[in-house]
């Protein structure tokens, strides 16, 4: 089995978000980049499948050379090789088209991605690439089992869970629950050393079509200062919530 795991290269959660070039671009100055948190769950699950079923695990990112440290981190965690599509993508459709091509060219059986990236929060790439390749797709996946060419998938639905079956090749968008927090992988020293020698190939982009154009970014208006109420006067809080906030 061949597994392709999409790795998002995103600003660390604690980053201060700023914009530049007249608020039309994200300002990457001084930003620490990490593997997209949702992708850590899919990568850990892919590692379990690799270990159990001796699958081949390839990670992919669409980005410029600056994303390579993030791909190397995925290699240090245990992926066999990495592919970087050499493009600074402008929207989700571009990313999905590039990964769809990598998935087809490489003959992958299972394509896994996090359910959304924590930067642009589109939540679209996995579903788009599945449709481009005409493959079945399950979103918000919290359980996955592969038996031969068949997959059993559990997805989160509004107020519960649904178990589904599907044939490979399959695209899933994973999230927390796919593995537990304790099962997440942290690269160790040996992994980091080995990652330096693992193949990271760069392919040139081929997609041309976009569907969205980001024209302006803004920070939401700062919240008014928190109104503090004394712990001895809980009645006042109830009164404020009822009469001022109209929330009770």
């Amino acid at each position: 089995m061949k597994i392709l795991v999409c790795i998002g290269h995103v600003p660390d959660t604690t980053s201060k978000i700023k914009f530049t070039n007249n608020d039309t671009e994200f300002d990457a100055t001084g930003i620490q980049y990490v593997i997209n948190p949702h992708d850590e769950f899919t990568l850990a699950k892919a590692m379990q499948l690799k270990e159990k079923q001796s699958a081949k695990l390839v990670v992919v990112n669409v980005g410029l050379v600056s994303t390579e440290p993030t791909l190397r981190k995925a290699l240090a965690i245990g992926a066999d090789s990495a592919i970087r599509v050499n493009l600074d993508p402008k929207d989700s459709l571009t990313v999905a088209s590039e990964i769809a091509k990598v998935a087809l060219d490489g003959g992958f059986d299972l394509i896994m991605a996090g359910k959304e990236s924590i930067d642009y929060n589109g939540g679209m790439v996995p579903g788009l690439l599945a449709s481009i390749n005409n493959m079945p797709f399950v979103n918000a996946v919290v359980g996955l089992d592969i038996d031969g060419a068949k997959a059993t998938v559990i997805r989160e639905i509004d107020g519960g869970k649904e178990t589904l079956s599907a044939n490979l090749p399959l695209v899933i968008a994973g999230q927390k629950g796919l593995v537990t927090e304790e099962e997440l992988r942290i690269p160790n020293m040996r992994g980091i050393m080995m990652a330096r020698k693992k193949p990271l190939s760069v392919v040139e982009p081929s997609a041309t079509e976009t569907m969205l154009e980001f024209t302006k970014f803004e920070k939401p208006e700062a919240k008014a200062e928190c109104k503090m109420v004394s712990a001895d006067n809980v009645e006042e809080l109830v009164d404020l919530l009822h009469n001022e906030a109209k929330a009770l």
């Binding site: 642009y120 024209t215 970014f217 803004e218």
Partner: peptide, 16 residues
């Protein structure tokens, strides 16, 4: 739309 986990908002043009 929301971006950066609602730490920012973005104007997007739907071009199709």
């Amino acid at each position: 739309r929301k971006v950066f986990s609602n730490k920012a908002h973005a104007d997007v043009v739907l071009s199709k």
